[in-house]
């Protein structure tokens, strides 16, 4: 019976589709946290496959820091229109205007950590009982510890020391009123798996991931896109370089890499050769040893 064998990408795909269907079956009102990055794009693609030929039974929720790459927004809107999806935007700017969160000051100011408040607010207001995320366990050491079905208390908090056991593929999404779940269907994928899958499935990607010319400047060893959202110090000089992004998030904490990779094949070769993790270019993780764990406990993605 040796013919009946799935290669590892097919097995990962099947596992993820299984999880997305469990979400649809176990929850009343789930959403996909859509950032415009490659992981949330892959999750959305998997959702299209999971429910085909029916439409995706989830809302896309974008927590918008206001500091976006225009290319990412254009991509998002096109994806939504093409596939008849529902999109909801939770705005960090609004939360700042209403005085619910305070904008960080100074050169390293970032709205990344501020996303937690509008995220939890959107979950509460729209009565989402499950938020599907594109986080992968290989990204970061705190994420490496998280379950597929991750329980959140009524404050949206994660308790890493007291997670529910998760056996086989039996997922327990039961919860009390006011609590919700975060579910991570591509937990078991690596960066390489994601790119190989994008290549195999011919998924269209935002242009940011491919090599292009851009005005950038260097700070603490990271190259940032020049944008009105970042104050530059006197010695920081903007120059045009050929770059691409390995992850796409808020402009102020997404670092560019110098790269000539213009096709998916090129990107795959580059990922294979890479000596640093993709989060090595993310300023938000460099703040302290347990930065991600602390943010996650508070209700971050």
């Amino acid at each position: 019976m040796n013919d009946y064998h799935l290669n590892h990408l097919k097995e990962l795909e099947s596992e993820s589709i299984f999880i997305l269907r469990e979400v649809a079956a176990q929850f009343e009102n789930p959403c996909i946290l859509f950032s415009g990055g490659k992981d949330s794009i892959v999750v959305t693609h998997l959702a299209l496959k999971a429910f085909y030929p029916a439409s995706v039974p989830f809302t896309l929720l974008h927590v918008d820091t206001g500091h976006n790459f225009q290319e990412a927004l254009d991509y998002r809107d096109e994806l939504v229109a093409k596939n008849g999806l529902r999109l909801l935007i939770a705005s960090v700017q609004e939360a700042i205007d209403k005085g619910i969160v305070r904008e960080e000051k100074g050169f390293n100011a970032s709205r990344n950590a501020l996303q937690t408040v509008p995220l939890l607010e959107a979950i509460e207001k729209n009565k989402f009982d499950c938020a599907i995320g594109g986080a992968r366990r290989d990204e970061e050491k705190a994420r490496a510890k998280e379950r597929f079905f991750s329980h959140r208390d009524e404050f949206g908090q994660w308790d890493p020391k007291n997670q529910r056991p998760e056996l086989w593929n039996i997922f327990n999404g039961r919860k009390h009123i006011g609590e919700h779940f975060r579910v991570f269907p591509i937990s078991n994928w690596t960066e390489m798996d994601v790119w190989q899958y994008i290549y195999q499935e011919k998924i269209e990607m935002p242009s940011l991931y491919f090599s292009h010319k851009r005005n950038v400047f260097e700070r603490d060893g990271v190259w940032y896109a020049d944008s009105p959202y970042m104050l530059k110090k006197e010695n920081e000089i903007v120059e045009e370089r050929v770059v691409r992004f390995r992850t796409v998030g808020d402009i102020t904490c997404t670092g560019a890499v110098f790269s000539e990779a213009a096709t998916l094949e090129d990107i795959i070769q580059e990922v294979a050769a890479s000596r640093t993790t993709e989060r090595g270019t993310r300023a938000d993780d460099k703040r302290s040893e347990a930065a991600m764990e602390d943010r996650k406990k508070a209700g971050y993605f």
Binding site: R137, D138, E140, K141, A142, A144, K145, P160, K161, Q163, S187, N188, T190, M192, E289, A290, E293
Partner: peptide
């Protein structure tokens, strides 16, 4: 420390919960 990623694990030098790692 490559797998003991939680603060409490590093403090106590033990593993508390499963860590998933990937390689090929």
């Amino acid at each position: 420390l490559l797998t003991d990623g939680l603060r409490a694990e590093r403090e106590q030098g033990i593993t508390i919960d499963v860590a998933y790692r990937y390689f090929s």
